[in-house]
């Protein structure tokens, strides 16, 4: 007979022990598939060179060392464009891209969600449709357009397209639909606040989880951006690109390369850990109604 048991619910729901066991086994297998490669990446970065080239390979590190990270930082010092420049490039484009996106996408989302005006629905439909194709389709013609605007080989080539990210606008609009009550906006309007004021002082403070989510998504995209076809100058290239270049040196640099992977993955993971509950809250309204 099915075992009766309480979980998060007040009323007892039936959950069979067999089902619980089966699900646990599946989850452990899937979890191992997801987690072990990540753990192995970390292990590799802590292995001294002789352990990296050991036969048969061992999963766990025997004599953990931070040697690889030290090597990575000393390799950084040898690059002809100072590494601080690459870091600046990534930080600058990330901040400019992310905050520009947050500002204009939130403002647009507010108007689309909370003001009824001719064309608004059509605009949102178009944006929603654009979620259906991958950006690779537009790289070639974007390049042509950017050359026409003289944006090639400038920071703008990275920053401005980031402002137009569609997923961010979509999530913000959906979140405002469900979480900003029309009545509150209406009373602010009656008190004489104009739309910009209503947007900035009433709506925005109510959607904190959504703007945190927009920031995280934009940040992830820009942080992980490697070589861009829109940038030629070495001095304008991203941290991710530069780190890939210095660790691409084959066997001798295998340790530094493993360390760089860990460094690059640690940042987005830490950011996600901090913001997880807000992102999940935002996703609560991500559903597509039609």
């Amino acid at each position: 007979m099915a075992k009766m048991r309480t979980r998060n619910h007040r009323v007892v729901l039936s959950r069979s022990a067999g089902g619980d066991a089966g699900i646990t086994v599946i989850m452990v297998i899937l979890g191992a598939f997801m987690f072990l490669p990540m753990l192995y990446t970390l292990m590799q970065s802590l292995k001294p060179l002789d352990e990296l080239w050991m036969y048969p390979p061992r999963f766990f590190v025997l004599k953990p060392t931070f040697r690889n990270f030290k090597d990575l930082f000393s390799l950084m010092n040898t690059s002809w464009v100072p590494f601080s420049r690459y870091i600046f490039n990534t930080v600058f484009t990330t901040i400019a891209g992310t905050f520009g996106h947050l500002l204009i996408a939130s403002m647009c989302a507010y108007a689309l969600a909370k003001i009824k005006f001719p064309g608004g629905r059509f605009m949102f439909k178009t944006i929603q449709t654009s979620l259906m194709f991958h950006a690779t389709v537009t790289t070639v013609t974007s390049f042509i357009l950017m050359s026409a605007f003289k944006m090639i080989d400038t920071y703008w080539a990275i920053i401005i397209p980031a402002w137009g990210s569609t997923l961010g606008l979509y999530l913000m609009k959906q979140f405002m639909d469900t979480n900003v009550a029309d009545a509150i906006l209406e009373s602010a309007r009656l008190d004489g606040a104009n739309e910009f004021r209503t947007f900035w002082t009433i709506a925005m403070p109510m959607v904190k989880p959504a703007w945190l989510t927009l920031i995280i998504y934009s940040f992830q995209g820009l942080w992980n951006a490697g070589a861009s076809i829109y940038i030629y100058s070495e001095q304008l290239k991203s941290f991710n690109y530069a780190i890939g270049q210095i660790t691409a040196g084959g066997i001798r640099r295998a340790g530094a390369s493993a360390a760089s992977t860990v460094l690059m993955m640690a940042v987005p993971i830490i950011v996600f850990v901090i913001s997880q509950s807000n992102i999940i809250e935002t996703m609560g309204s991500s559903g597509m109604k039609d």
Binding site: I104, A105, M107, C108, Y110, A111, L112, I115, K116, F117, P118, G120, M123, T126, I127, S130, V137, T138, V140, T141, S142, L145, I160, P161, W163, G164, T166, L169, N194, E195, F196, F199
Partner: peptide, 22 residues
């Protein structure tokens, strides 16, 4: 609703130039 068009304009311009136009 003039103000609504002002509010959507910056995003819609970027969106049009780098997503629709390409």
């Amino acid at each position: 609703n003039k103000v609504a068009y002002v509010m959507v304009a910056p995003y819609m311009i970027v969106f049009t130039l780098f997503t629709v136009l390409p």
